[in-house]
């Protein structure tokens, strides 16, 4: 489960002499916690079972990460 709003992207410089086929758009992670300075009370919570699976009691701070995203 990945949330696209927690990713950034940019266009790297591409040289005609790049030895490997160039990647024209690079993606990087902007994890959810960096958009909160201090957690406000009363945020929606996962069920205990969901929280264990997700690694967080609050869905707001879960962004997920999978190799299928192709970030690296």
């Amino acid at each position: 489960m990945q949330n696209p709003s927690y990713r950034g992207s940019y266009k790297p410089f591409v040289s005609p002499r790049d030895p490997c086929p160039p990647i024209t758009i690079k993606y990087f992670v902007l994890p959810p916690q960096i958009f909160t300075n201090f957690q406000q009370p009363g945020l929606p919570q996962n069920s205990p079972e969901e929280a264990l699976m997700q690694g967080s009691l609050w869905p707001k701070f879960v962004d997920g990460f999978s190799r299928e995203e192709g970030i690296s």
Partner: peptide, 30 residues
């Protein structure tokens, strides 16, 4: 580091645990 481990591993069981550990780092940072 967890992201790059997930990207280099093709073991679904391991990747599930790594994904959990990665989310914990988000909360710790906050």
């Amino acid at each position: 580091t967890y992201q790059w481990l997930i990207d280099i591993s093709d073991d679904p069981g391991i990747n599930d645990a790594l994904r959990f550990l990665r989310e914990r780092e988000n909360i710790h940072s906050l």
